[in-house]
Amino acid sequence: MILVLRALGVGDLATGVPALRALRTAFPAEELVLAAPAWLAPLVTLTGAVDRILPTDGLTPRAWPGGSPELAVNLHGSGPESHRLLLSARPARLWAFRSEAAGVEGPLWSDEEHEVRRWCRMLRHFGLAPDETDLTLTTPLGYAPSAVTIVHPGAKSPSRRWPPQRFAEVARRLHDAGHHVVITGSPAEQDLTAKVAADAGLGPESLPATDLASLAALIAGARLLISGDTGVSHLATAYGTPSVTLFGPMSPARWGPPAHPRHQVIWHGTRSERGDLPGPDVHPALLAVTVEETLAAARQALLPAGPRSR
């Protein structure tokens, strides 16, 4: 058994796909178990690399699998907590970044590295050959392309949430230009999505009810996605869907999509800025993003640029 830890969110899973596929290729006969939140299961299935999810609550597994893994792989962080968690499963080997506190050898961690490249580099250190461009997810079965334009105003932290009135203005302008605009968000963001839709002059039909699988399918068949720096932007990358991603506290050099005309990024920050701001305020770099440049980026993303990936 290969036990892999990546107990994080949607974007984290999407950026870990090349590493997961490299492990699947290297150990085709071994069961590959991913320790991750249970709610991610619909997306984990779309990677085609994982045999089973071991549900976690944060960094706490509900139960370790029986028996000691042949190999444990830390795709979660630099340690020492995550290293020690995997060591508690008594694996024969542990692949991870170096941590003196946990007594683990491995390559050195770099804060400035892109998230996709980081885990691929670690696996190369241990002799694997991951493909950093292998980010594609399969489309959930039973869903047809809808060609909608998705505006996704939510994000996990307040510092990454562009003002809702600006999202509403973008949605209104795109609707007036002939786009079939829908507003998406998590169940906890229903008030936000309803406000954006109302302020954009859109009716209740612009607020589709989605679970994680249907949201992935909606993005896979969409005409365009406009969002902040949050998990859905990585799903647009996975499906080759034209996208505009608005960055605030985090540099796109660390979390942005691959350089491609279909994926436009807007960022007015500096490399010295790092991490979310505490409190309810929007990051100044995100506040500097205007409606007009967002619409211009949308037009650029929609220009012909070769076939979409699948």
Rank of each mutant, 00 (worst) to 15 (best):
T136R: 11
A102T: 13
G77V: 06
P69Q: 10
P153L: 04
L86H: 10
R90M: 04
E115H: 07
P130Q: 09
A171E: 06
L85Y: 04
A144P: 05
R172E: 08
P163Y: 03
P130T: 11
T138N: 08
H83L: 02
L128D: 05
T136L: 01
A147R: 14
R172M: 00
P130E: 09
C120W: 11
L123E: 09
A102L: 07
G154Y: 00
G154W: 01
R173Y: 06
G79Y: 12
E115Q: 14
L87M: 14
E112W: 10
P140Y: 01
A89N: 03
V170S: 12
S78R: 13
P91W: 05
S159Q: 09
R118D: 11
H179A: 01
S88C: 04
E132I: 12
V148R: 15
L85E: 08
H83V: 03
N74H: 05
P164H: 11
H125F: 15
L94A: 09
E105D: 14
L174R: 12
P140R: 05
H175F: 06
L137V: 13
H125Q: 10
D176T: 14
V151P: 01
A72V: 00
W95M: 11
H152Q: 15
E113M: 10
R161H: 07
R172S: 06
Q165E: 15
P140G: 04
G79M: 01
L123T: 13
V73Y: 11
L174M: 14
G127L: 13
L71T: 00
L85H: 08
A147F: 04
V151N: 02
P69D: 09
T133F: 06
H175M: 01
